[in-house]
Design a protein around this nucleic acid. Sequence first.
DNA 1: CAATAATCGAGACGGTACGTCACGTCTTCTT
DNA 2: AAGAAGACGTGACGTACCGTCTCGATTATTG
Lengths: 202, 202, 202, 202
Amino acid sequence: MSKNGEITEVLTRGPGRPRSEEARRAILETTLELLQKTGFNDLSIESVAAQAEVGKATVYRWWPNKAALVMEAFVLAVESELKYASTGSAEAVIRDQMRRWTKVFRTPLGKVISAVIGAGQSEPEMLEAFRHYYVQPRRVEARKLLREAMLNGEIRSDIDPDTILDLLYGPLYLRLLLHHAELTPELADLVFDIVMPGLKPR
Amino acid sequence: MSKNGEITEVLTRGPGRPRSEEARRAILETTLELLQKTGFNDLSIESVAAQAEVGKATVYRWWPNKAALVMEAFVLAVESELKYASTGSAEAVIRDQMRRWTKVFRTPLGKVISAVIGAGQSEPEMLEAFRHYYVQPRRVEARKLLREAMLNGEIRSDIDPDTILDLLYGPLYLRLLLHHAELTPELADLVFDIVMPGLKPR
Amino acid sequence: MSKNGEITEVLTRGPGRPRSEEARRAILETTLELLQKTGFNDLSIESVAAQAEVGKATVYRWWPNKAALVMEAFVLAVESELKYASTGSAEAVIRDQMRRWTKVFRTPLGKVISAVIGAGQSEPEMLEAFRHYYVQPRRVEARKLLREAMLNGEIRSDIDPDTILDLLYGPLYLRLLLHHAELTPELADLVFDIVMPGLKPR
Amino acid sequence: MSKNGEITEVLTRGPGRPRSEEARRAILETTLELLQKTGFNDLSIESVAAQAEVGKATVYRWWPNKAALVMEAFVLAVESELKYASTGSAEAVIRDQMRRWTKVFRTPLGKVISAVIGAGQSEPEMLEAFRHYYVQPRRVEARKLLREAMLNGEIRSDIDPDTILDLLYGPLYLRLLLHHAELTPELADLVFDIVMPGLKPR
DNA sequence: CAATAATCGAGACGGTACGTCACGTCTTCTT
DNA sequence: AAGAAGACGTGACGTACCGTCTCGATTATTG
């Protein structure tokens, strides 16, 4: 993310004016706003700096390029969304996760996520960051539950849990990215109900 | 695509020097080449014109912007790939289609397709073109087979055939776009085998 | 001027469609019109062709460049103005010529003439044409009269007649080109009256 | 000239990187050089920027168009030439000025001046600048001397001093612009000698 | 409490690509 | 053959951002 991790910044700080937290926030918020409004391609650092009322060099001092900036803005937008807790059986939790996703995808954040994936097709580190900061953290719990269900004999154990998650989320992502059909909680249920039988042990 | 459809161009042509087919081909081929090499973002019309040894104005005369140009180049690249024929049962044909896809996605064309979808997140008409020129033509046969299978009672008839195709192809697209795992014919088989049971009539 | 002199064109003509006199006239008239309206720099052959409803190639077929075209338009505009006749003594005739000039300079033709001289600062052949088609023909009579007056002892004979004409017309041209003061027949008289004493034999 | 007058620029300067004096000089010098080499029409801002090793935007930041740029270059070239001093009677001083002019007109600066007047036929503000920055400053002294000579009864007082200067310099400008005869100090003397008798009180 | 140092905003800098316009040439059909 | 129509490669136009730089001003730590 930013050049200095938070810990070192607090404990040992050299002389000189400290980084303006206000500027940082303004830049990231403006980035998110413009990202939703104009998309990744038309988002210029020039316009971020102008709208955030910040010097252009201040942006470049902390983020090496547009991708890094957008990435951090994206992470900021997405991290607050992680605080949830589902309870119940493995199947109930995953089904609940999937439903929640379809709802998140329909907020402005959905536009940000598809913009990030889109930009990632040109910028590999963008994609890497998306997987690292978004996909993986969200799969942790589901993966654990799937493994437990495999041990319990509730689902087939000859398939990689991540592949199962690809099967469940792939159709949702497809609609997010291709816009050829609506993305609804009902679709999440349908996908889940169709895929599950195939996961039962024979 | 181009301003004049081919038919009217042949039958009734006004005065004036006709469009140079050579220039058109050079531009589209160069576009494809650069698209694979540098991606959508770094592809500049300036460089296309230079490498195709064509005036920049000639590009702008026929394509209003980069998206339109890339779109037509994409269609050109993709249309020759449509000529195939699978035979057998509905399930056999669809399984075969899916396997073939995973192979196409690994050629340079795969890079073009993901670039198009990526760019489409910023440019709606790009996405529209992708759906219209790529997705739909390829789904025609599968959709027909699925409908027949529904009538025969081989698969559930309470699901939209396109949604079924989303279920089958979504996981493949996910790997194409997120690059988090490999895209293999075996994956196609696995997806097919897991999804199919859920489609059987209860 | 045009590639083929008029005589050969009439006497020996090859096969093929003859040159369109209508197009020629339309081009030259449009040129004059645009020359007065927009000046030499902003006059484009593209716009001449468009406004004259003529193919661009037709312009280039007969005139090698903008300068040549403007030159011929200028000559056309100016040649009708040559038909006059002054009578009387040398001094009376020259004074009359000078007065007439100041009047011509104030018509739209004056704008054309100053545009031609202006353009001539960049294009030598333009200047050459101006001198050949405008200045020289108009000086013929005055020069003859001056020489006679020298022989008669009315004016000094130790000065080149053309230098005398420079003395008389220089101040007028200066006002035409610098626009720092008005160009009036009275000025012509004043210049004449001041210069003449210095031309009397001592 | 430039957007900020020099005085305010020194006294009160806003924030931001200050204008590069080096770039300014390089641009103006390159402009002068190209103006003499290629004339006004063929001088492109693109080539000025390239040869001055300066971004094109830097030129456009400070000069709105080619005319403004050439004008300031012209003023720069001409202002150093003003520092001279003639002494003696009114007639001696003016004669001396005229001779000096014919010499200046034959240096590369002469080419610049005729280019400026030529361009001025299309661009009024160019002409305005020429009169304001070149003609007027140079006429100040001569005008003063002429007025004194009128009061002393040495020359007619019924003629506007500027008209007298038109009479003296008109013939010189005519040769500068029409190139039909050489521009020599002897011509300056001849013009002076012929015009003066007509200026004596009757 | 000064000196030092890193930050801030502002904005100019050398560049690159944009999309447009006119150049002068060409290739077609029509007259 | 010459006409109009109009596409061609070329190159300059004026604009927008890029990422870097240099200012004066501000805000912290250090001697």
